[in-house]
Amino acid sequence: MSFIKSKTIPLVITVIVAIFMLLEYYFPVPGIKSTAKTIRDWAVIIAAFALGLGAANLLRIHSLNIQRRTTGIWPFSIWLIFMLLLFFVVGVTLSIEHTAYKWIYQNGYLVLYASVFSLISFYVITSFYRAMSIRSIETSILIVCAIFAMLKNTPAAVAFWPGFETIGTWLLDVPNASVHRAAILTAAIGSIALSIRVLMGRERAQLAE
C-alpha cells in the first residue's frame, strides 16, 4: 500500500506522458501520434474538471466570509456567489449564444477586462516618476534608451525630426534584438534543464516535496 501511496507513481506517470509527447514529435509513427493526441485530449478534460475545484474554493472562501461577517467584505461575497451561480446557470441552460448571456458578457466582462488592463497607464506614469531603485550608470542607460524608444513611437516627434525614427529603429533592430536573442537562448536552456530535472525526478514541486 505504501508503494501505491508513494510519490513514485505520479512521477512515473509524468515521465511516460512526457516521453509520449516527445516521441510523437521526433518519431511521428501513426500509433504513437494517435496515442499522444489522445493523451492531450485527456489533459484538456482533466483541466476542465479542475475548474470545479476552483469554483469550490471560491464558494468556500466566500461563504466563510459571510459566516464570519468579515468587515466590509461579506455583502460583496454574497453578491459574488449570486453572480457566479446566476451566470453559470444562464450559460449552461440557455447556452452562451443567448442574448442575456451575451449582454452581460459584452457590457460586464469585456468592459471590466479592458478597464483593468488599461489601469496600467495610471501606474506607468507614477512608476516613471519614481523611476528606478538601482541608481547608477545602468539606470541612466535604461532611461536614455527608454526615452529614444518612446520618441520613435511619438508620431509628432518623428514628423519633427525623422532621425528619432532611425535611432529608435536601430535600437530595436540591433541592441534590442541582440539582448532578446540572448535572453531567449538562455531562458530556453533554463527551461529545458528544468524539464529534464523534472523527468529525472529531481524537481518535484508539483508533488509538494
Binding site: A47, A55, N57
Partner: peptide
C-alpha cells in the same frame, strides 16, 4: 488557473 490550486494547497 484551477489546476494549479491543488498543487499550491498541497505545498
Amino acid at each position: 488557473h484551477p489546476e494549479v490550486l491543488p498543487v499550491a494547497q498541497e505545498i
